[in-house]
Design a protein around this nucleic acid. Structure first.
Lengths: 217, 217
DNA sequence: CATAAAATTTAGGCAAGTCTAAAAATTTAA
DNA sequence: TTAAATTTTTAGACTTGCCTAAATTTTATG
């Protein structure tokens, strides 16, 4: 079993390595888990002993297959809990991250699989990030921003690209929330703002907003 | 903030003190939290410093008002999560205790209040134990065993008095689960077994079983 | 390519929570 | 009511995870 702390390190290393697929520096981990570099070095030795990371002094680290599997499982739990909090307990998109940071460490596999089923096996969390399945598979990103839709092409809101509370709160207010079906009616030539039909209403959103709302066709 | 460990100590002291309402011994706490007496003494000093318990060397401990409030809040969380696990995720009665031991330490008050509402503000957990409300009030026990019902008096199953897995599994099999409406048809004079109507079926349960199923009228 | 700057690791320590062994207090029982 | 048994506490030590300060390695720059 890995401690709460070890899990957070693995998760951070995972998130830091995904965008670039390169080895991760001690300092970047320190920033991510909110400690000092010296503490990170201590932990890296421990994780390397457990064969959860590949670590060579001064050369940064990468996850082993086993370490990666653990990290992905934490991400799965995090995103499922976020989905639960928004869909069932009606939290706002911008309120759930902190809560999920705690819930993601609940250990039971059975619990998370049942939660997954209870939620209807969602594919994306409320921010539009893909939820890994129980085998660790992560759906390739098939979400596209509203700005790339053709007028008349209806789609369902699955997530966002921008996580700032002020943005998420704006979407709440406009009723542009997860699961809503939307259809662009027209793109205004003047400023590229988009006229959308949502719930039989017509709303207008700026190009910037349209770029940051992710949908599936 | 109190650590996970401190919370467990407070919870144990609470559970140990409720039945007798007397001060709790070091050894009984040690047994309850699964450590050695020496470790308990260390922790008692710490909790006393924090004014969460009344502690005099060699004289056992009791909770202060503040300590009790914390303990009750943990019990509230434990029982609400158990209810969630059984009602929403369809765990069996005998499977949820361990899981709730972990979930009860999730800190957010907002989360637990929303969970409470989502579950319909349940008054009893799946074992029939009362769920404290958000102010710490605990409903006086109003549940009665089936064996005390009059024939024809219908009631709803709220919990059990016996928590042995084999018993809970038997109830599952007989469909005698939480929330089910039941009505005793007849008490057999020979062995005091009870004929019950459940879901338009008639089932027979022994007197012993009837004594261990708690209902509300 | 030499050296300054930055990043990383080592060394030595601290707090929380646990343990064993031994000492002290309390309870039981002869 | 005193000795034995039991319970509780103290003492000293270990592990995990964190820290600061100093040493070392790598990287960047003139």
């Amino acid at each position: 079993m890995n401690s709460y702390t070890e899990e957070n390190y693995l998760k951070s290393i995972y998130h830091l390595s995904v965008p670039t697929d390169e080895s991760v520096s001690t300092n970047s981990i320190a920033a991510s888990v909110n400690t000092k570099a010296a503490s990170v070095t201590d932990m890296l030795k421990k994780l390397a002993d457990k064969k959860l990371i590949n670590y060579t002094k001064y050369q940064g680290v990468s996850l082993t297959e086993e370490g990666k599997a653990i990290a992905i499982n934490i991400v799965r739990k995090h995103r499922l809990w976020e989905f639960f909090l928004v869909e069932k307990l009606h939290f706002k998109w911008d309120e759930v991250h902190e809560l999920a940071e705690e819930l993601e460490h609940i250990t039971s596999v059975e619990l998370i699989d049942r939660l997954d089923k209870f939620l209807g096996n969602p594919k994306y969390d409320p921010h539009g990030d893909p939820i890994p399945d129980s085998t660790g598979c992560i759906k390739k990103d098939e979400l596209i921003p509203i700005s790339t839709l053709q007028p008349g092409q209806s789609a369902i809101i699955m997530g966002v690209r921008e996580h700032a509370p002020v943005f998420l709160q704006y979407l709440e207010k406009m009723n542009l929330t997860i699961g809503k079906q939307i259809k662009p009616i027209e793109v205004i030539a003047f400023d590229h703002s988009v006229l959308l039909s949502v719930n039989n209403n017509t709303v207008s959103i700026s190009r910037d907003v349209a770029k940051n709302i992710l949908v599936t066709i």
